[in-house]
Amino acid sequence: MVLVDQNMVDELNLLLRFPASSLMQGLKIHNDASQTVVHAAERLYSKGIITQPDGGYLTDLGIDLAEHARTLQVALSMKLN
Rank of each mutant, 00 (worst) to 15 (best):
K28E: 11
M24S: 14
K28V: 11
I50S: 02
M78Y: 06
H39G: 01
S34V: 08
S34M: 11
L12C: 10
Q35I: 06
A41Y: 02
Q73H: 10
L3H: 06
A69R: 06
L27T: 01
T59R: 01
A33C: 14
V4M: 15
A69K: 07
N13D: 15
H68K: 13
A40Y: 02
I50A: 02
G48W: 06
E67K: 10
V4T: 15
M78K: 12
H30G: 09
K47T: 03
Q73V: 00
D54Y: 06
S21Y: 07
D10E: 13
N13C: 09
A20Y: 07
V4W: 10
N31I: 02
M1G: 13
K47Y: 15
N81W: 10
A75F: 12
K79L: 15
L58R: 01
V9H: 04
L80E: 12
K47G: 06
I29G: 00
A20I: 13
L27K: 00
G55Q: 04
N31M: 09
S22Y: 07
S21Q: 11
A33M: 10
L12I: 14
T59I: 08
N7C: 01
V74F: 15
A41M: 06
K79T: 09
A33W: 03
L23W: 04
A33V: 09
Y45W: 12
D32K: 03
L27I: 14
L15T: 00
L14Q: 04
P53R: 10
L14I: 06
